[in-house]
Every structure is written in structure tokens, then in C-alpha cells.
Computed example of a mutant assay.
Amino acid sequence: MSTEEFEKLHEMYRSLYDEVKLTPERAQRCQGEERKRIVRDFDERVSEAEEVTHLQSQRALLIQGTESLNNASKSIERSQWIAAETDQIGTDIIEELGEQREQLDRTRDRLVHTGENLSRSRKIMRAMSRRLVTNKLLLSVIIIMELAILAGVVYLKFFRK
């Protein structure tokens, strides 16, 4: 309610109050038609004041409802903005998780290939180790045979005469 409207309402009530104070004295002094006219005027002023009061209260309720609606609209706008921001953050997180999944898949594939390469390397190392042992045994047999032949030659040459 604006100050101007409040002053108008206050002035109306003040004049009505003044009339109410004077009405019993006037009603006692007057009789018949004059008395009825005073009471009728008084009733009209009261109904007019009630109508203005009712209109003002409806207007105040309407303004209050409009303000509540505006506040609710702003709240909904903020909620929509927050929802949009949350949606964008969620989308960014999903994209980042997708990229991380791809990295993990590539890493897993590299580990599988590395594991396969290590298995092949172990097989090669075992094969090389077997060959090494085989070569040493073969070399040892050859040396022993050469020593036996040399011993046989020395025996035949020096001891068999």
C-alpha cells in the first residue's frame, strides 16, 4: 500500500471517526427524517470505508501474490541454471571418464603384449640355456675324447715299444 493511499484511507477514517463522535449528539437533537438521513449518511460512509478497505486489502494480497510469483520465478530460473550447469559438469565428467577408459584399454593391451613378449623371451632364454648346457656337455665330451686319444697316442708311442 502506497503512502498516498494510506493517507487517503487514514483521512477517511479520521472524518468517519469525527462523524461518529458527533452522530449521537446530532441524532439526539434531530428527529424524524433528519435523524434517518444522518443514520443513512453514516451507514453509506461506513460501507464506503469498508469497500475501500476491502479493495485495498485485495490489492495488497494481489501485490503480495505477484511478489511471491516473481520470487518463485526467480527461484525456478536459478534452479534451471544450476541444473544446466550440473548437466554440463556431468557431460564433461562422462567425456573425461570415456577418455580415461580408452587410456586404460590401451594400457591393458600394451600389458597383454608385454606379457606375451615376456613369455616368448622366457622360452628363448630357456632354449638358449639348454643349448649352452648341451654345448658345454658336447665340448666336455670332445675334450675327454681328445685327451683319451692323446693318452692313447702317447701310450702307443712311448710305452709300447
Rank of each mutant, 00 (worst) to 15 (best):
Asn71Met: 08
Arg29Ser: 11
Ile143His: 15
Arg126Lys: 06
Lys21Thr: 08
Thr53Gln: 11
Met1Leu: 05
Thr53Met: 02
Gln100Tyr: 12
Ala27Ile: 12
Ala27Phe: 14
Thr134Met: 12
Lys123Asp: 05
Cys30Pro: 04
Ile76Gly: 01
Glu4Met: 04
Gln56Lys: 13
Glu25Trp: 13
Ser119Pro: 04
Thr134Ser: 15
Gln64Cys: 09
Lys36Pro: 06
Ile89Gln: 04
Phe6Met: 03
Glu34Tyr: 02
Leu62Trp: 14
Ala83Pro: 00
Ser79Pro: 06
Gln64Phe: 11
Arg101Lys: 12
Gln100Ser: 11
Arg131Leu: 05
Glu19Leu: 08
Glu19Arg: 01
Glu5Val: 04
Ser140Ile: 02
Met125Ser: 00
Thr23Pro: 03
Arg130Met: 04
Glu67Asn: 11
Arg101His: 07
Ser2Glu: 15
Asp41Val: 12
Glu34Met: 01
Asp109Pro: 00
Gln100Val: 10
Tyr155Ser: 15
Phe42Ser: 06
His113Leu: 13
Glu25Met: 09
Gln31Met: 08
Val46Pro: 08
Gln100Pro: 00
Asp109Met: 03
Glu85Trp: 04
Ile82Trp: 05
Thr134Tyr: 11
Asn70His: 11
Asn71Ala: 15
Ile89Lys: 04
Ser47Cys: 07
Ala49Thr: 04
Thr134Pro: 02
Lys74Met: 14
Gln64His: 13
Ser140Tyr: 08
Gln103Thr: 07
Ala72Leu: 09
Leu118Gln: 05
Ala151Ser: 14
Pro24Thr: 05
Arg101Glu: 08
Asp41Thr: 03
Glu102Ser: 07
Glu4Cys: 01
Gly98Gln: 07
Phe6Ile: 01
Asp105Thr: 02
Phe158Gln: 14
Ala72Pro: 02
Leu156Trp: 14
Ile89Met: 00
Asp105Ser: 06
Phe6His: 01
Asn71Phe: 04
Glu4Trp: 12
Cys30Ser: 10
Thr107Gln: 08
Leu137Val: 01
Arg130Lys: 09
Asn117Ser: 04
Leu97Ser: 05
Arg130Pro: 00
Val154Lys: 15
Ser140Asn: 13
Arg37Phe: 10
Gln100Glu: 09
Gln58Phe: 06
Ser47Glu: 12
Ser121Lys: 09
Gln88Tyr: 02
Leu156Asn: 05
Ala60Asn: 13
Thr53Asn: 09
Glu19Trp: 05
Glu33Phe: 07
Gln58Asp: 09
Leu150His: 08
Ile142Trp: 13
Ser73Met: 14
Ile76Leu: 03
Asp92Arg: 11
Arg126Glu: 04
Glu11Met: 11
Met128Gln: 13
Arg108Cys: 01
Ser2Gly: 10
Ala83Lys: 08
Leu62Asn: 08
Gly115Pro: 01
